[in-house]
Design a protein around this nucleic acid. Structure first.
Lengths: 343, 343
DNA sequence: TTCAGAATCGTTAACGTTCACAATAATTAT
DNA sequence: ATAATTATTGTGAACGTTAACGATTCTGAA
């Protein structure tokens, strides 16, 4: 029993106790002290459930979600949304709801941010894809005192922000270790950035850095070549690449994003043997490649859980002022053929 | 709005709606049909939170936890308990509580089961270490209609049971793949069962099978030797082992349980080079070995999450008759030096 | 002294569900 | 036909929290 017990012990009504707990005005300093002392002595932790039950109808917790538009060819962003939806489903009966917004580029991003701030949301979940826009969003949010959680990527912003993301540098190092285990010191390493029109994301660059850092720590002479390839163009070998790929060395290919499944067909077409491939994200093409032994490892960043955790973290923060779940480092999941878990 | 809305539409009181929802007696067939029809039409999902808030004080959900006694030298079982405690913490305000029991062998297990059934628990979480005892526990539980969740291991029982566990066979295969990536076809493989006084657990055997299955699928001629070693005896090399270890082959060592950290000191003492080691569970000794590059891979089964999931799953089942979270296959987490996440 | 106005505090209904109890309707016995 | 049961339904309080509203006390100016 909570507030009632405190009230009785402090010789005041539950109304007053509520007032001091919620820092509402209209209570004298003496009684406040009196109540606070009782709370100090016998302790009190609010029953969040009861509180939300009361408020569910009148004071909804409204969260705005702003994520990249997910097309059929680029469905990654459906996954965090799935996690978000799951969390919201669990919390609707407590008066939590979410609105989904999407963007395609920096300009639509900014417009959507404006739209979001026109309504009165209690929190925002988005991605830090555009540094300037992210910073101004953060400023706006801070000015009206609502929390923001960034998913997927961490970039330096000029205020401390909440990120739910994988450490991409470490992920690159993990990729380096795994690939090196198969390829060894004498093989040849290729980092493949398969970029879309929007250029390379921060994640890709950080993953590449981690990968290089790891291999350098093993042997500074290891041969690494970075290849950048636009996603919708045909892949053509330069003379240099042709030479590197056609020798007998073992070759390790590190794809810094989720399009690793594009590699095996290219290798097959050009009859390149002795290769090992590692990439990111458990999309169905990559899963297929894992199953057929065309890709050796996939690193996953649990995007669904990222979305789920964002909502649950925000709920905890808003209801209990506990920010401890707003800033999470997602484990780097290593997937091989045998530990695929179908969802 | 739930029950009230249904009541209004069906022209009955909330009391009767509650009666049909909870299948309590005292409602005529006609009105029952009437209410059911409304529910069919406009749908109804009970607000579990409100329900539990009402019942929290009077109808506690009591869960019995029966796990192995965790000693200082064998602290694995603290981890599921941590997860259980976390879940209980989240649910206490909804009237959920747990009592912890432990056992050291089959006999104390049975006594504790008796103790548990003397009290009136609403659910039981335990481990399937003793087949007979597990079966009889399952029967008892079924006779009074309370759910049981088994953690950590799956064994065949003569009634369908709920398991939250990793697929140990697959885990063995993952180990096989990872080790084979480093050791190759020509190396020599050792499966090490470091057993305690209670013999080898089902997990260990299944992991060994998976490991062998995988390597056999690569090449039937791969050389694998199983070594069984009692945990508290000194390790002594037989002549055969001495010969196998002292040649120049690459050697892969698969420890089927959490004591892989015992291997590196032995290897060092006997000056054995060219070895790769893989084991299970993120205890601090294994973490240390990973960090020092003495162990290459650790497979983890997320014991903390297993405990957490058991409680949450039981809560969902008891409150909403939804058993979907009672039977979970835990992912096989592959850990290397770079993706250790400290807790 | 009186009293308006402010400051402080208590009361109460509500959130959705549960369930004991009261109330009514239907049935049977006399 | 009336009383006594039984079957069916409605009522209201409670879980812990919130907040509007009303009640009380206090302050200071006339």
């Amino acid at each position: 029993m909570g507030i009632k017990r405190i009230a009785k012990l402090a010789n005041v009504s539950i109304g007053t106790v509520d007032r001091v707990l919620n820092k509402r005005s209209g209570v004298s300093k003496e009684t406040e002290k009196k109540v606070l002392k009782i709370i100090e002595e016998i302790g009190y932790s609010k029953n969040t459930t009861a509180s939300r039950l009361k408020l569910a109808a009148t004071k909804k917790i409204k969260i705005a979600i702003l994520t990249p538009k997910s097309s059929t060819k680029w469905s990654y962003w459906k996954l965090p949304k799935k996690g978000i939806t799951k969390a919201i489903d669990e919390l609707t009966e407590l008066g939590v709801m979410a609105d989904f917004y999407d963007f395609t580029d920096s300009s639509t991003y900014k417009t959507q941010v404006k739209n979001i701030f026109l309504k009165n949301y209690d929190a925002i979940v988005t991605v830090p894809f555009f540094k300037n826009a992210s910073n101004s969003l953060l400023n706006l949010a801070e000015s009206i005192n609502i929390p923001v959680v960034f998913l997927d990527t961490e970039i330096p912003l000029h205020a401390t922000a909440n990120f739910i993301r994988q450490n991409s540098e470490k992920a690159g190092m993990v990729a380096g270790r795994l690939l090196h285990g198969l390829v060894g010191n004498d093989g040849h390493y290729f980092i493949v950035n398969i970029s879309n029109d929007k250029g390379i994301h921060a994640n890709g660059k950080q993953r590449e850095n981690g990968f290089r850092t790891f291999l350098k720590s093993i042997d500074t002479d290891i041969n690494i070549k970075t290849i950048t390839h636009a996603v919708d163009s045909n892949f053509t070998f330069t003379e240099e690449l042709e030479k590197l790929f056609k020798n007998n060395n073992t070759k390790g290919i590190f794809v810094t994003n989720s399009r690793s499944h594009m590699i095996p067909p290219i290798l097959k077409k050009h009859n390149i043997k002795n290769t090992f491939v590692i990439g990111f994200d458990m999309n169905k093409e990559n899963i297929e490649c894992l199953k057929n032994d065309k890709i050796n490892f996939i690193l996953d960043q649990n995007p669904k859980y990222q979305g789920y955790a964002a909502i649950k973290g925000l709920y905890k923060y808003i209801t209990e002022q506990d920010a401890s779940d707003l800033n999470i480092e997602i484990p780097i999941d290593i997937i091989v053929k045998e530990n695929i878990i179908e969802v």
